[in-house]
Simulated assay, not measured.
Amino acid sequence: MQDRLTRVIMLAVAVLLAILVVQPYVDSYLFSARTPRPVAARGDLSELERSTIQVFETVAPSVVQVVSLSRRSPRTEAEPSESGTGFMWDAAGHVVTNEHVVASGSGFVVRLASGEVLPAEVVGQAPNYDLAVLRLNSRTGLPPPVMVGSSADLKVGQTAYAIGNPFGLDQSLTTGIISALKRRLPTSGGREIAGVIQTDAAINPGNSGGPLLDSAGRLIGVNTAIYSPSGTNAGIGFAIPVDVVNRVVPELIREGRVPTPGIGILAADETVAAQLGVTGVIVAGVAPGSPAEQAGLRGVNPAVGAIGDVIVGVGDEPVRRLSDLTDSLERAGVGQTVALKVMRNDSTRTVEVRIVDIGQEPSRPRRP
């Protein structure tokens, strides 16, 4: 009786082992998808998805890749050097990009979204705004210009879209929000751009010069820089506001340059003002014959230890730092007269000063 029980147990174990060995093969035969699987139906796209797709499909054809060419020697042909992004500005073939994209190139080509490559020439550069305009040599079959919006009514938190060519990968779309407004950004021209837009839409090397768009697909800024210790996206990107772009680009197309509004002063370093506890722009020196000298502004006088006049306002706007002053002068424009509030010896007075194009003025500010 015991032997029979043993045999039954051994048989049961053998059957279980057989099942364990055979089961994978059975499962493979019965359940493997050996033919294409049926496609599952999906619901409608969300409203946000449809909006994003529409923005990309509308604007992407007008976004181009700008490739800078450099010549190493007279015996070598031009070779690709740097690339950035640009976008169509008008039907005449003008393309807007960053000034730093074209600053070091000797020649340029533009690759359209269709893949067509066209030669281009620079018609104007504005280092003070990091903007440049190129003109395509061909006028036929060009994509439409990007719609222009406004940056004056932007709100922190609204959706932002960036289209560009990060790392040379063309037609890339990133999305995010407007993270902050009224940032200030130094430029290679030695000035600051006021009202700069901060966004967390991913901006990487190669995105420079590309459009920043709102949810209606309108241009609200030109992507220009990122803040990143590693050189790649860290969630903090900056764009030149479109209201500045819409003022500067026509000047570049007409004149090839943008006037630099000024009054002919040399401003003291802002750290000096901070150390002295002064709020405003300390006039370190004035240019001979300049509007500042004509208005009676005084610079630093080291002989008596006087710090010079301090500009504390333009019209009804306060001036706390140099960028406040330059921003006010730019908004007023060359040829206009502004009322400067100037503090001297603890008393404040108002003087009328004419704004000139200091980029064409031969004289230079001097220190007393």
Results as ranks from 00 to 15, higher is better:
Asn98His: 04
Asn233Pro: 07
Val244Arg: 01
Asn165Ser: 14
Ser347Asn: 14
Ala12Phe: 13
Val222Asn: 02
Gln2Trp: 03
Val244Tyr: 03
Pro205Glu: 11
Asp200Arg: 10
Val258Ala: 13
Phe56Pro: 02
Pro127Arg: 08
Val122Asn: 02
Pro145Thr: 07
Asp153Glu: 15
Gly195Tyr: 05
Gln275Trp: 09
Tyr29Thr: 11
Gly280His: 13
Val248Gln: 01
Ala126Arg: 03
Val146Lys: 08
Ser138Leu: 10
Pro302Ser: 01
Ile307Val: 00
Glu352Thr: 14
Ile19Thr: 02
Val300Gly: 00
Gly190Val: 11
Ser290Asp: 05
Leu17Ser: 06
Ile263Glu: 03
Leu340Gly: 03
Gln65Met: 09
Leu48Gly: 00
Gln65Cys: 04
Glu99Gly: 06
Gly335Gln: 06
Gln171Thr: 06
Val278Phe: 08
Gly217Ser: 08
Val249Pro: 06
Thr271Phe: 12
Val102Asp: 10
Asn128Trp: 05
Ile236Asp: 00
Ile9Gln: 07
Met147Asp: 15
Ala273Asp: 13
Leu134Trp: 09
Asp346Thr: 13
Leu131Val: 05
Val109Ser: 00
Glu82Asp: 10
Gly359Phe: 05
Gly189Ala: 02
Ser215Gln: 05
Glu77Leu: 00
Pro261Leu: 06
Ile53Ser: 13
Ala268Lys: 05
Ala273Ile: 04
Ala273Tyr: 09
Tyr129Ile: 09
Leu169Glu: 10
Arg75Thr: 02
Val146Glu: 03
Leu297Asn: 06
Glu79Tyr: 04
Leu142Gly: 09
Val109Met: 04
Ala78Val: 01
Thr326Lys: 03
Arg42Tyr: 12
Ser363Tyr: 04
Val300Leu: 15
Gln360Asn: 07
Met88Gln: 00
